[in-house]
Nucleic acid binder design. Structure first.
Lengths: 410, 410
DNA sequence: TCAACTTTTATTATAACATTGACAAAGTGC
DNA sequence: GCACTTTGTCAATGTTATAATAAAAGTTGA
């Protein structure tokens, strides 16, 4: 945590990153255009652009329109010049994405984890990365891997403190992976990287303060503040699933009562729906699942609600009521610009978002609510893997222009 | 929000601020000592120290012990070299503090506001500042005023969006004050600056991630993340008072149900105590307030609980139960290093903090809870005014070494 | 006591960076 | 065709940090 000291190269780093960001955003722009947007001199911009040209990240592309003098040379951002790796784990399966500099997925390799040990998971991931690298030998790839892992992850050390659903405790995943593959590894919780993904390529592009909520087996949030992940002192900020919604509600394995996760999550939603099925004994869902209620999952409830099934809508309305309490609290406490809803089975649907908007309006303070947009994720289940690649892309300038510029794998 | 560009002076600014911070923390240190702590070269440190000597912020003070060679010249931080102004409003009264560079209060001027209009408040504050400046003519004072105001304040514009308890809406306080006194004005919400105060001079010294909770007429939180105020997109982050604790609880003027503020606040605590007095008709509190229950305030409840009064303890236990839900949520969501309790009437007492610790332990996740210290504020009602001065002190380097170094009032 | 060694301080030279101003190149517009 | 504008680059300049050096001031040990 030693804040960077002011050495002369720091200036170049800051300015180059600035120029890089603008190029990525604007896609094509002239040197004078960059000078104006950065408020750097034209000479400085020329120098910085030279290093970007050298790195192959931009290229000259014809001339722009003259504004009464010599027409400017246009510079074009080359997103495919360098690629990044991001991996996500779900249901004992890794998916590793290869993305371009915009975090756009280009290739993907998935692999099942044999066994439930962390060793097996690390082995599998190493193999998948290996395969993906083999298949893309011709590409320049940043020598790092971002990982979206389940559980509580200490981002500084890359140690998984606990991931209850897979039964891992104190797993030094970063270290395990770095010794298997020759890449720097950045590990973070799935929901946290999901937030990064939606911010870079999804619903939150252009937003600096957003909260991503992922609903699946559990519920968790990834918080982005001023464009950066909000981690807290322990990297455990954003544990939305264990926020208390009903102080006297049902007991949670965590020891608390009335945790959001016990009320709103795929199992909770499916459970409520099954319960109602037993009581009402009618409707479309009953026709399909009455015989084998255990087959009814949250996905089916969301799907039925989309088709107007009354029971399903009621179940979701109830869930939305609880979730709205939590989101209202988030709005009051974090005052975000945007809330992005994501999830595997339908929690990221517009139907659900619309329900939530109305209910959150009643819960949150008007002033904070007026500033927030509640919307659905655009990346679906890719959010985490894309975001994992973003963990790498955030370090792109260092990796590209750092001490050993030859460290880029190829 | 235009992020600073990398010009050569930026380096000096960064490094000087770094040296300044270390001097403030260490009080007395040699040049080589600074060089080691900053990892700057000795030559650079000498240059930077020269500018601090010139500004009068440090002075040479004898020699240190030799470690086998020429003994070093010791440098001493001079907290009284320059002073800062911070004001806080409460109960239609301003208190303006003059503090040193450590935010330690040296002088204070209080003034009642005649009438309830914002104009009257601005006039009164301008007069109080004037008086304080007159009385301290011989001092160097930074040409700025920090203000801790009630209500929702947009920190960028200095406009009070709404302060319901004093009936202000859309009040451009920053502008009103700047036109009355010739100083730059920084405005923020009372609880937010309270957090700054406790971090600089109170319970949170040395902490980078803390949440200050102030309990009075209402409840609000000030959040500090990586040493800086967390404001949110609208400067309205930290509205803890309107977090939902009981989804079906009592209606709040804000429109929501079960807001924390309706359950835990001075009026709520006093109200619950009065209610119980009517029912039980006995005990020490009844002896004193049975005849005129309307005279019973929250302060009396806290005082009685300290003396072991059963009824008072029960009332506070109930309040703590509710507050623990909110604090547990804060711990899960923000994962702070410390939570500081403050309040006018006893919410910042060790008795109450002890109650909360036990209850929060049951609510929050173990991993996040293990990282947090729940403690009482050390500044009491001074927290906000001290923190308001901190708003100025945060800008001290710019104010001292900025474009017009002569702008310092004297 | 004196010489060898250390540490501190100041000074000078050097390197990295951004800016300025000049100037040629390449257009526009009357 | 000529005056004017914009663009791209280069050399000169100023700022900052660092490295090297020398002088100053003390310690240590024979």
């Amino acid at each position: 945590m030693t804040s960077r000291i002011g050495q002369p190269e720091l200036l170049k780093e800051i300015n180059r990153a600035h120029v890089f960001e603008i190029l990525r955003r604007e896609r094509t722009i002239s040197r004078p255009g960059l000078a104006e947007l950065t408020s750097l001199s034209r000479a400085t911009v020329s120098l910085l652009v030279d290093s970007l040209l050298q790195a192959g990240i931009v290229q000259e592309a014809g001339f722009g329109a003259s504004s009464g003098g010599r027409p400017p040379v246009l510079l074009e951002f080359k997103p495919h010049a360098v690629h990044a790796l991001g991996a996500r784990m779900r249901d004992y399966q890794w998916s590793v994405f290869l993305t371009d500099l915009d975090a756009r997925p280009l290739d993907c390799e998935s692999i099942e984890i044999r066994g439930s040990s962390a060793e097996a998971a690390a082995d599998a991931l190493a193999r998948a990365v290996e395969t993906l690298l083999q298949r893309n030998q011709s590409q320049r790839i940043l020598p790092a891997l971002g990982v979206g892992s389940p559980g509580l992850v200490d981002m500084r050390t890359g140690v998984i403190q606990s991931a209850t659903d897979v039964g891992w405790f104190e797993v030094p995943l970063k270290q395990m992976l770095e010794s298997r593959i020759g890449l720097a590894v950045y590990v973070a919780n799935r929901s946290k990287v999901g937030a990064l993904g939606e911010r870079w390529r999804g619903a939150g592009t252009g937003t600096e303060d957003l909260i991503y909520i992922s609903i699946g087996t559990g519920v968790a949030a990834g918080i982005i503040h001023r464009g950066e992940l909000y981690t807290g002192i322990n990297s455990s900020a954003g544990e939305l699933g264990h926020v208390t919604i009903e102080p006297h509600g049902p007991l949670c394995p965590c020891g608390n009562r009335g945790c959001l996760q016990q009320l709103v999550s795929d199992p909770a939603i499916a459970g409520r729906a099954r319960e109602r099925l037993r009581r009402t004994q009618q409707g479309r869902l009953f026709e399909r699942y009455g015989a084998q209620p255990e087959a009814l999952g949250a996905g089916a409830v969301f799907a039925a609600a989309e088709e107007g099934d009354e029971l399903a809508v009621e179940v979701l309305d109830e869930a939305a009521e609880h979730l709205a309490v939590a989101i209202g609290n988030l709005v009051n406490l974090f005052n975000p610009e945007m809330i992005v809803l994501g999830g595997q089975s339908g929690a990221g649907s517009e139907l659900f978002a619309a329900m939530l908007r109305e209910k959150v309006r009643k819960r949150a303070m008007a002033y904070a609510f007026s500033a927030v947009t509640i919307t659905t994720g655009r990346l679906g289940s890719d959010a985490a893997a894309v975001g994992a690649a973003v963990l790498v892309l955030q370090h792109a300038p260092e990796l590209l222009f750092g001490e050993q510029p030859n460290a880029v794998a190829q």
